[in-house]
């Protein structure tokens, strides 16, 4: 039951972020929307790795257990990687948004209107 609830959360977060990517105009809000998408994927992986009534995947805990129930370690490691990548992406996007604001004086994508022909 819990896992179904989590999967529903994952999908609704993904839909939320994609809708906001399509409808939001502010460059900073787009960054936030992409962060939500990243979090939904992270949550998805963590949900995949979860096993009920199990311990953290630590090697020294293994002999003490009656039956070997641990959450899967590899998705957690991968999600750690993804969080770091997401951090880099967010930082770069915010930097580019700030420079765009400096050069154009607006963050609204409708006013930016893409890249014009070079004069």
């Amino acid at each position: 039951m819990l896992s179904i609830f989590l999967y529903v959360t994952v999908v609704s977060l993904l839909i939320l972020s994609i809708t906001s990517v399509i409808y939001k105009r502010n460059l900073i809000k787009l960054v936030i929307a992409l962060n939500i998408a990243e979090s939904s994927v992270n949550l998805f992986f963590i949900t995949l790795a979860y096993r009920p009534d199990s311990t953290a995947p630590i090697f020294t805990l293994a002999p003490a257990l009656q039956e070997l129930r641990m959450v899967l370690p590899s998705p957690q490691a991968l999600i750690l990687t993804n969080i770091v990548i997401g951090f880099a992406t967010t930082a770069l996007m915010l930097v580019l948004a700030v420079i765009t604001y400096k050069n154009n004086g607006t963050l609204d994508i409708r006013k930016l209107k893409g890249v014009e022909d070079h004069d």
Binding site: T89, M93, L96, T100, N103, N104, V115, E116
Partner: peptide, 16 residues
């Protein structure tokens, strides 16, 4: 003027 915005567009699409 437009180079940072072009870069922003590229990383937006790539991240999606």
């Amino acid at each position: 003027k437009h180079a940072p915005y072009a870069g922003y567009k590229y990383i937006l699409i790539s991240t999606i």
